[in-house]
Each structure stands twice: as C-alpha cells, then as structure tokens.
Design a binder for these strands. Sequence first.
RNA 1: GUGCCUAUAGCACAGUGGUUAGUGCACCGGGUUGUGGUCCCGGCUACGAGGGUUCGAUUCCCUUUAGGCACCCCA
Length: 483
Amino acid sequence: MFPKKRPQPPKPPAEPKPGDPPIKKGKAPPELLRGFRDILAEEQPRWQLVRDTVRTMAEAYSFDRIDLPILERSEVFLRPLGKNTDVVEKEMYSFEDPGGDKVSLRPEATAQVARAYVNHGMLNLPQPVKVWYEGPMFRHDRPQAGRFRQFNQFGFEVIGVPEAIVDAQLIVIATQIFKDLGLDVSVQINSIGTVESRQAYLTELVNYFRPHRSKLSEDDKRRLQKNPLRILDSKDPVVVELLVGAPQIVDWLDEDAKNHFMKVIEFLDEMHVPYVLNPHLVRGLDYYTHTVFEIFLAGDEPERAQSALGGGGRYDGLLEMIGGRPTPACGFAVGIERVVKALGEKGIHPPPRRRPQVFFAQLGDAARRVGLKLFEEFRKADIPVAEAFGKNALKAQLEVANKLAVPFTLILGQKEVLDGTIIVRDMDSGAQEIVDGAKVVALVKRKLAHASDILVTPASAGAPAEAEVPEIDPDLDAQDAFR
RNA sequence: GUGCCUAUAGCACAGUGGUUAGUGCACCGGGUUGUGGUCCCGGCUACGAGGGUUCGAUUCCCUUUAGGCACCCCA
C-alpha cells in the first residue's frame, strides 16, 4: 500500500506495569509465521500486473466478481474436497471458534463458490452463473519455493451448464491470461469421467496393481486402498513402469463422457491452445468429474516441483454434495505467487503504476503549512507528489528528489512564503524559475504534459528537455506568475 | 508429515576456538548561510534462539526455529 519501505515502529507493550521486568533492549522481534510472508513494495508492481490482467480478462468475458469469506464452516470443504485427500487430511487450518462452531480457513474457493450459489439461490439467475474471485487461501503444508501456507489464488467458475464448450472456454481464458502476462504455458488435460463410469475403472485399476502390491511403496499401497485414482500420478519409478501397461481411464469412460471430452479437445484445437493429453493426470480433490487440467510454464512441464501454475476442471457433482440441486459446473484456479515468481524469473518487472512526478521541498514550518494545501491541489490535478518532511536541509531533500527521479521539484522557503511564490526546479537541466504560488499546479501540469510528449517522440531520447524548456517559459500563465 | 543442506548487519557476501567480527550496497549525519546526481569524511545495525563441550565459542556438539532442495501433495 505504501510506496516506501517503512521501518515498523516497535509496538510498545500496552502499559508497563510496575512489576513487569524491564523490556530488554535488543529483544528479537516476532518472527513471521512459517509459510506466511509479507509482500513488499518491490514485488507489488508484478502483483498489480497480474491482478489487472485477470480483472480485464474477467470483464472481457463478463464474469462477475465474487468475494467470499476466508473463514467457513469446515463442512463446506470436508466432503466436497474428499476425506482422503491430503488437503483435508492434513492441510486444513481447522479449529473451533469461540462460539463452538467447527470452522476452517479456506484451502480453496471452488467449494465456497458452490456454497454461495446454493445459499443465494443463484439457480434463479440466468444460467450459467459466471464468477471470478481472487484472494488468500490457507494450507498447512510444508513450505517450499513457490509454496506457502497462505497463498493467493484467482479463479473463474461457470455454474449451471454442462456443455463442453464451457470447459474449453475456461481453458482458453486461463491460457490467454498467461499470454497477456507474457508467459508461455502449456496445458495438461485428461478426463476422469463421471463418478459411475469411474467406479468400474477403479476396480480394474486396483485389480491390475494387486499382483504387484509387494513392489509398491507404503505411500502407494495406502493410495491404492484409500484413493486409487491418485496412484496414477505417482512418481515412483516402479509405479511409473507399471502404469505403462495399466488400464487407462479414457477407455472406461461412457459414451457421454467420451463425447464430452472429445468436444473439449476439438474446441481447444480450434483455438490453437497448446495442450498435452495426459492420461495420468488426476486432481487432488474429489469433486472433479470429466475434464481435468493443469497449467504449466512451457518448457518446465510437469516434472519440476511446484511448476503447476494452476489447474481446474469440471465438477458436476459438487453442487449436489453441498446441498443444492444437481448442477453442472466447471472452473479453474491459479496460484498468484507462482505466476509472480515466473514473471520475475522471466525478467518481467513492470514499473509501478504511478510514480511521483513532483517533489515538494520545504524550509521551515510556514512552508510546510503551505505545502499541506499544495498537496491537495496537486491531488485534485491528479499529479502524485512526494516529500520528505523528516528532513530539514534542502540538500537532503533534493537528494531524495533525485532518488525518486521526479522531473520537477518545488522549493518553498521563508522568502517564497512571504512573496506567495514558489520555485520550480527542472531536475534534468537544473533550471529554476520563480512562479506565482497560485499558478504552480497549472504550470507543472503543462510542463509534465509537455515532457511526456517529448518522451513519446521516438528520436528524442537524448537531451531534449533543456532545449524544449524555453518553449514553455513564454507561456501566458508562467508570465503572469512574475507580476 | 519424512529426508538432506543452510543460518553472520536492511540486502549481498567475507572471516575466526581467544584482545575492538570485516567489505560493498543501503540507511543516518557532515564537507559552514536555502540547491540533487560524482567525490571525501563520520556514524548505525549482525554472528537466528536455547542448551552443552571448553579456561574461553560466532566458530565444535545437541535441540529448536526459519529458509532452501527432494519426497508427499498442490497453487
């Protein structure tokens, strides 16, 4: 929020009581919670770029923004995500609130969107209901590069229609967001069919592995028992070997499921979305049906850890699980931290959206007082102004102005306050002029407009500023300023 | 949750079983009156925490915390 790094003032303990031990001077400050982090000024431009890109895309495809609470009743997540999934088994921040309700910090938002859809009777809205969200999620996982306990996702959900084109359009939207951000991605895609068609397959899969049970790791044995589908994305070489000959889920899809999947693929072909059919792709959450997909940075595909930028799929059973009518739906979510990281690695460092254009240097209290008013005038003129009220020496203030790379500095001292004037210093040329305090905003505004004209002129990168200044000076208002 | 590696100032790095733990950048102040970018001078801030071994530990050992990597899993 603030443009500058600011040292946090030490929080004094409320009331030092007489009995309290003296506060140790070099006391270690509280550490950040494991897996939690601060996002400081330096990173903000990239975050902002991601947010802006997402919002623009959402508007273009007429998705409505939805904001959901961070805390929910635990039941919202338990069944939909699946009792035997890692997220539910060991990663949820769950506790009893002071009123005795069992609540959880949300580990993801799709189940919440479904809950909101049911709660607010959105089935009475024209279908499909298209929403997007963005915000923090929480999973108590072991932190690692690109993985945090509080992380941010944006996501798009389309609820209420079963058509394959919805799946395809969501994938198009996702890939297009990355393209707009300057990131090349590829999509891994698969279909896990309906709950019914999957059942037969699962039996077959378990049968296939039964003779090889002794060769499996403890992890994989457990999976085979509790959540057989998950064995498909095991990285154990033994399993990978076995999987080559294993039954493939696509062969067990019923006609409808097959058709659905084929249509999705066709649409993607038509839109030239780069994708890879991955028969072993399954997702970590139980609510998925039919289409599932994950998005990777092109080039460092599936194998690299934490390389998935996002993922999603169809979840036709979720709404019913959560207490609504059977309602088809599809969506995806993307981890913003990972996108921001990818942008950084690609050397994409967008400039901050607004940098100060003017620096206000003051000498003495009278000048500060005038400055306070001046700030408001500049604000109304939409010109961001910086200052260093903590410094008294003009030299020190100009140093700051220089670091901020502002085009102009206003200098206001005792003399100027008395005269009702102000000095405008061009920081490139060092040229100064004394102008009427009442006209300074308009003057600076014109100078800035002129300066940006110069900037967009291609061949004038050299030293045009100085040469151009005289053209501004004869300006009417500027002359008035000297009366 | 498992295994391995790491931990020195705001940041990037040096260094040592024993007098004042260095360097660069950053930050603060100064180089005489109210003028920046270069330069010069000065200052600030650290051995993650706890315990042990030792005459003595930042250095060795253990624990803990945090970070990284791999696994698990995912965003």
